[in-house]
Simulated assay, not measured.
Amino acid sequence: MGVWDHLTGQTEAIRGFAAAAALPPDRLAPGNGAPGVTPLENLAMTHSWLITGPPGSGRSNLAYAFAAALLSRGPDDEAQTMRQVQARTHPDLAVLSTERVIITIDEVRQLVTASQFSPSVGRYRVVVIEDADRMTERTSNLLLKALEEPPPRTVWILCAPSEADLIPTIRSRVRSVRLRVPSTEDVAALLRDRDGVDPETAEIAAREAQSHIGMAHRLATDPDARARRRQTLETALGIRSVADAVMAAATLLSVAGDDAKAITEERDAEERESALRSLGVSPGGTIPPALRAQLRALEDDQKRRATRSLRDGIDRILVDLLSLYRDVLLLQLGVEGEPINQAIRSALDDAARASTPASTLRVMDAISTARTRIDGNVAPALALEAMLVAVSRHAVR
């Protein structure tokens, strides 16, 4: 399997990156990139890249495929290199993938230090930063110094939703490639070919995930995730009063919590078991006092990850609700086409008849406002209650 075979919906970007990776290392451009978005047909090799695109477009997948292509020493080495990159074990690959709200300056400092080494087995030393938009300005300035004077064989690959999420000085040092949202058909085909999902489930998951590749995979392979999404929509459609709204807010917060736990609990247990094993502590054994600080640090990291996972779970709920009322609005306006939430078509028809397009738009505005408030660190419970009270005002009693 080639390094590009597991990607979907980004044919032009793949073609450009493959051409850049095929150039010999001595063709690496001396500059640090070029401001703005580079036409894909003009991609040449350079020291620093920025891959942007909406959530679910496959930014990190493409970054790691590009990294594997850069590290590979030839067609015969591609499969082995890709396995090492996917496992994050390649000696010439450094990765920063945070599960906190922000990337810390210490994390970037360690990465900058690693970037100074010459490649040991590959053609390049490749450094990947996922969620580069999570850097503070101070942290970004530390990274900027590394981008301005990179070692001869070091390549940086940053990922972010948009160019505007990074400070201007970094944008001026990178070559930016913008991805598009994959089509529903592309995502469904990926689920069928890569994950062995049956065609009907793959198509439904891709549509309900709105072409978000990671979410489509979860919906296609996890019945509990599908059930939680269905509960979210039914809860919103059942609101008829302010009391219903307050109870619905608690329900949605619980759904988001269950979703976050499903993602983090198994991983937390595996990390703790691995940490105890590396410290020489047998399962169920007493942890020596000298080692407890290391485990507390792991637990603190896991708590921060749980916080971010909960925030992400709440945002997924709000995105699903936007898709619900988007369907209702299109039905009210008589727009042809299959709704995102076709599985509850009869409930959509009832909701469309029970209100007006103006009311539906006000509900969608309330959902967007809730997303903004939560992103600004307003307590999720309060933001959800305020949003759902707005829903109750436009519900037919």
Rank of each mutant, 00 (worst) to 15 (best):
His6Trp: 08
Gln10Met: 08
Ala13Asp: 02
Ile14Thr: 02
Ala20Trp: 00
Ala20Thr: 10
Ala22Thr: 10
Leu28Ser: 00
Ala34Tyr: 08
Pro35Glu: 14
Val37Ile: 13
Pro39Ser: 09
Leu40Phe: 10
Leu43Asn: 05
Leu43Tyr: 02
His47Leu: 01
Trp49Val: 03
Thr52Ala: 13
Pro54Cys: 10
Arg59Ala: 01
Ala63Cys: 04
Tyr64Ser: 00
Ala68Tyr: 03
Leu71Val: 07
Ser72Glu: 08
Arg73Asp: 04
Ala79Asp: 12
Met82Trp: 05
Gln84Met: 15
Thr89Asn: 11
His90Arg: 15
Val101Ser: 11
Ile102Thr: 15
Ile102Leu: 08
Ala114Met: 05
Ala114Phe: 00
Ala114Leu: 05
Ser115His: 12
Phe117Asp: 02
Ser120Leu: 14
Val121Leu: 14
Ile129Gln: 00
Asn141Tyr: 04
Leu142Asp: 05
Ala146Gly: 05
Glu148Ser: 10
Glu149His: 12
Pro150Gly: 15
Pro150Phe: 08
Pro150Asp: 12
Ile157Lys: 04
Cys159Arg: 00
Ser162Lys: 13
Ser162Cys: 06
Glu163Asn: 14
Asp165Ser: 14
Pro168Asp: 12
Pro168Tyr: 07
Thr169Ala: 11
Arg171Val: 06
Leu179Ser: 04
Val181Gln: 14
Pro182Trp: 01
Gly196Pro: 09
Ile204Glu: 00
Ile204Asp: 03
Ala205Glu: 04
Gln210Ala: 11
His212Lys: 07
Gly214Pro: 12
Met215Pro: 01
Leu219Phe: 07
Ala220Tyr: 03
Thr221Val: 02
Thr221Arg: 10
Arg226Trp: 03
Leu233Gln: 08
Thr235Glu: 03
Arg240Asp: 05
Val242Leu: 08
Gly257Asn: 07
Gly257Ser: 07
Lys261Met: 10
Glu266Val: 14
Arg277Cys: 01
Leu279Tyr: 12
Pro289Trp: 08
Gln294Asp: 15
Gln302Lys: 14
Arg305Ile: 01
Gly313Leu: 03
Arg316Met: 10
Ile317Trp: 08
Val319Trp: 07
Leu322Gln: 15
Arg326Ser: 07
Val328Gly: 05
Leu329His: 06
Leu329Ile: 09
Leu331Met: 14
Glu338Lys: 15
Pro339Ala: 00
Asp349Glu: 15
Ala351Pro: 03
Ala352Asp: 01
Thr356Met: 08
Pro357Cys: 12
Ser359Tyr: 05
Met364Ala: 13
Asp365Ile: 02
Thr369Asn: 09
Thr369Trp: 05
Thr372Arg: 14
Thr372Phe: 07
Arg373His: 13
Ile374Cys: 04
Asp375Trp: 14
Asp375Tyr: 10
Gly376Asn: 15
Ala381Asp: 08
Leu382Cys: 05
Leu382Asn: 09
Ala383Phe: 03
Leu384Ala: 03
Ala386Arg: 02
Leu388Glu: 02
Val391Pro: 05
Ser392Met: 11
Val396Phe: 00
